[in-house]
Amino acid sequence: MDEFVYDSVYLSSRDLREGRVLFETWQPNAQYAWDAGVAISRYLQEFKAGKLIGRSCPECSRVLVPPRMFCESCFCPTDDWVTLEDTGTVLTFSRCTITWDLVQLEEPQMPAVIEIDGASPGMGIMHMLGEVDPEALAIGMRVRAVWKPADERTGSVTDIAYFKPLKE
């Protein structure tokens, strides 16, 4: 099959940096305002009040978080708001030492998927972990939301600063 592999022209980063080949650059300047929608707008309003809420499905009885106005499994409208706990269980986590654009971080970020108490099993949300030694993180760890002070909350998922280990 070797004869059916085309010998494309490889450029080194120097070829571009030093202008040895011609190229154009363009920034699309794409700015978006994404609507939160019906379910997530309500979800975030409750963040301001320091509460997590989900939605329940009348057919499969799952309590869903993040909340949604329809159950993607039963494809029917969800029918009730359910107040959840602001505690949960770490389903998985990472220690990330690099930003998306490849800048090295001094302190690792600790993103996690956290199964929220009061929602159905496996219903997790992505958030950050804090007030914990990165090396002490473990799957199955119990955690609680650390809310920003009420006057600093804006109706954003960042109204929870992070989740920290729960001492039970």
């Binding site: 994404w34 993040p66 990472s94 990330c96 998306w100 993103p111 992505m126």
Partner: peptide, 12 residues
């Protein structure tokens, strides 16, 4: 709305 405000990295 529910994830990008956390400034995620795709590697996560």
């Amino acid at each position: 709305t529910t994830e990008r405000p956390l400034k995620p990295n795709l590697l996560w």
